[in-house]
């Protein structure tokens, strides 16, 4: 590692690593919500189904509400947890926060 004494890891990568982890977190939450409502509520016999806006409750919560929920979550994450990073210059002097 001697050649790297005067070098450091691109500071912008700290941001991109964190954002990639956030994306994986989002996908996991998205999956759990989708799976939980679909098979948690949808496994009951059809006679016991309840309906929301005419759709079976499992479907409404999993696919319709789940989609709205994840959209809001993406919005919040992008607004408050993703940071602006310059792409063009080498990012040496830039403060990335």
């Amino acid at each position: 590692m001697d050649t790297r004494k005067d070098k450091k890891i691109d500071p912008r990568f700290k941001v991109s690593n964190r954002e990639a982890l956030i994306a994986i977190g989002l996908a996991i939450i998205n999956f759990l919500w989708w799976y939980g409502f679909a098979y948690g509520m949808g496994s009951a016999p059809v006679e016991e189904y309840t309906f929301v806006f005419g759709l079976p409750a499992w479907f409404f919560y999993s696919c319709v509400a789940g989609f709205i929920f994840i959209t809001i979550l993406v919005f919040i994450v992008v607004r408050f947890f993703f940071s602006d990073v310059p792409f063009e210059n080498e990012g040496k002097e830039e403060e990335t926060q």
């Binding site: 990568f13 994306a23 989708w34 696919c63 990073v85």
Partner: peptide, 27 residues
């Protein structure tokens, strides 16, 4: 409706690709 459920797995593509490849790829 089971197939609609399956198709909703695609919503993840809307945000996942860009944020995983995201800035790292662009930089």
């Amino acid at each position: 409706l089971g197939w609609v459920l399956l198709s909703m797995a695609q919503v993840v593509t809307g945000y996942f690709t860009l944020s995983v490849l995201g800035k790292k790829f662009a930089i």
